Amino acid sequence: MTLLAVERIKLFTTRSPWWCMVMALVVTVGFAALVAGTSNADDPVTVATTQFGYGFGLVVIMVMAALAVTTEYRFGTIRATFQAVPSRSKALLAKTTVVAVLAGVIGEITAFGSWGIAKLIKGSADLAINSAYEWRVVAGTGLIYALAAVIAVSVGTMIRHSAGAISLVLIYSQLAENLIQIIPNVGPKIHRWLPFNMAQHFLTGRPDAGARGADGPPISEITYSPWVGLLYFGVFALVLLIISLWVVNRRDA
């Protein structure tokens, strides 16, 4: 518990987490307000489309998570941490836990905030959260944000440089996975099993009849259970975390 408290204090005494939290909230809720405000009878707002800003919030969260560890390497405070805590694995796990919990909380606040602002703007729209799909696309955001934070912390630990870590996680999650689809014949098959696509499948797999993804997270066409997607994404995050623990114990701080 002491390690968790220390990591919480270190995280919140820097400005970047606060700026990232505000940006994630403003961007996601702002896009939900825009979608709701521009909807009409022919293109009504739905529970899923209130989550239009999900991807933008995810980007901010991964930046925050990567900075949480790379900033310590940049200013050399990680050395003091490892001197105070001989077990580097415990120190890194404590940091990862704090960042992941914060990311999960932010995810839930932004998701339900987006849904709430849309409901406030379009009171006449059917925005009741009833089905399993609707619950996943809203409440599931926190789980994806938390796991994405674990991935970003792990990458940041291995690379140690803010620019490199942020570039890698953003280029891969936002660009590389989608570009793989253009590889002839095998591209779409490979893409089905890539981690962030699996995370997307958890949120939007097996949609309700008539669900659309044009103004929200793209509808997943994968046929197996969405919970398989969450498990796959979680295992991917765990593997990266284990690798980062091995790396941090093998090299000098």
Score class of each variant (00 low, 15 high):
Ala5Lys: 12
Ala5Cys: 09
Glu7His: 05
Arg8Tyr: 04
Ile9Thr: 03
Trp18Pro: 02
Cys20Met: 15
Val22Arg: 03
Met23Glu: 03
Val26Glu: 03
Val27Ala: 09
Val45Ile: 14
Thr46Asp: 08
Thr46Trp: 09
Thr49Gln: 12
Val59Cys: 12
Val60Gly: 06
Thr70Ile: 05
Thr71Gly: 11
Phe75Trp: 08
Ala80Asn: 12
Thr81His: 12
Lys90Trp: 11
Ala94Thr: 09
Val105Cys: 05
Ile109Thr: 07
Thr110Glu: 06
Ala111Ile: 10
Phe112Asn: 01
Gly113Cys: 06
Lys119Phe: 13
Leu120Phe: 15
Leu127Glu: 04
Glu134Ser: 12
Trp135Leu: 06
Val137Glu: 01
Val137Cys: 04
Thr141Gly: 11
Ala146Leu: 08
Ile151Pro: 00
Ala152Ile: 04
Ala152Arg: 04
Arg160Leu: 09
His161Ala: 04
Ile166Glu: 01
Ser167Pro: 04
Ser173Val: 11
Leu179Pro: 01
Gly187His: 02
Ile190Tyr: 00
Arg192Glu: 08
Trp193Ala: 15
Asn197Ile: 09
Phe202Ser: 05
Gly210Tyr: 11
Ala211Lys: 08
Asp215Asn: 13
Gly216Ala: 03
Gly216Asp: 01
Gly216Tyr: 01
Tyr232Lys: 03
Val239Lys: 07
Val239Tyr: 12
Val247Met: 07
Val248Glu: 14
Ala253Cys: 14
